[in-house]
Design a protein around this nucleic acid. Structure first.
Length: 229
DNA sequence: AAACCACGCAACCGCAGAGTA
DNA sequence: CTACTCTGCGGTTGCGTGGTT
């Protein structure tokens, strides 16, 4: 028997029909979101709770943003993926109206193939290298003690002078809220946000004297503003 | 026209954690 | 404390469709 739509079990599976959608919407309007396992009983739907929840969250919710992912949203996805990895629900929280499933699909479709796994013999080296790099950057952030409000006001005062490659204010807010960095190892690549753009660069070979390595990657270059903080 | 192929997306599954009896 | 249920998450699957041979 086929995978979809065969009513041989207790629950219906497969694509939702218009009638089922209607029943589910009516149910949520009456009872609100949650308690999904009672939908079958109260709404007369032969769907299990998980299926109902998924349908609502990913498709029926009225606050969903339909249509193509915009270039701006794509940038957010890239940036946040660099930070969080495959934590799609976390990423989705920063994109109102987009679902984790949608973002996951978008990523897989558009970016997954670009990042092949690094060879296993390099992976341990890579990990060590990455950890050192991260540690260095954390220290750097502590040292710099950037005053967020000051920077934000600079963005406002110098709106016309802000170079195009500086991350947008919204992006910065997210990054600061998360108190995290713009860089992540990604299967043999480093993801960095140099110049406000997502860049994937090959992981350099671990140097014998790591002190010699110039760690010059920051969130952005404050010199771009031509102002003294 | 038909067979084949590639890909996007909706929906599934298993698992884990939180909540409750 | 234990067992069970519910919810949410991330990975995976495979249908449907549009393009190509």
């Amino acid at each position: 028997m086929g995978r979809w739509g065969i009513i041989e079990e207790e629950w219906r599976k497969g694509p939702w029909t218009v009638e089922e959608d209607k029943l589910l919407i009516e149910y949520v309007n009456l009872h609100g979101e949650g308690r999904w396992n009672s939908v079958a009983r109260l709404a007369g739907l032969k769907r299990n709770g998980k299926s109902c929840r998924l349908r609502w969250v990913n498709y029926l919710r009225p606050d969903l943003k339909r249509g193509q992912i915009t270039p701006y949203e794509e940038r957010i996805i890239l940036e946040l993926h660099a930070i969080w990895g495959n934590r799609w629900s976390t990423i989705a929280r920063s994109l109102p109206g987009r679902t984790d499933n949608e973002i996951k699909n978008y990523w897989r479709t558009n970016f997954k193939k670009k990042f092949k796994k690094s060879s296993t013999e390099n992976s341990e080296k890579t990990k060590v290298h990455f950890l050192k790099r991260k540690q260095f950057q954390q220290q750097q952030l502590l040292n710099s003690q950037i005053d967020m409000k000051k920077i934000m006001s600079l963005f406002e005062e110098n709106e016309n002078k802000v170079p195009s490659h500086v991350p947008k204010q919204e992006d910065m807010t997210i990054l600061y809220q998360n108190n995290t960095f713009h860089e992540q190892e990604q299967g043999g690549f480093f993801y960095s946000m140099i110049n406000g753009y997502a860049n994937y660069v090959p992981v350099p070979e671990a140097s014998s004297n790591d002190e010699d390595i110039m760690w010059d990657i920051g969130l952005w270059n404050l010199d771009d503003f031509n102002v003294n903080l």
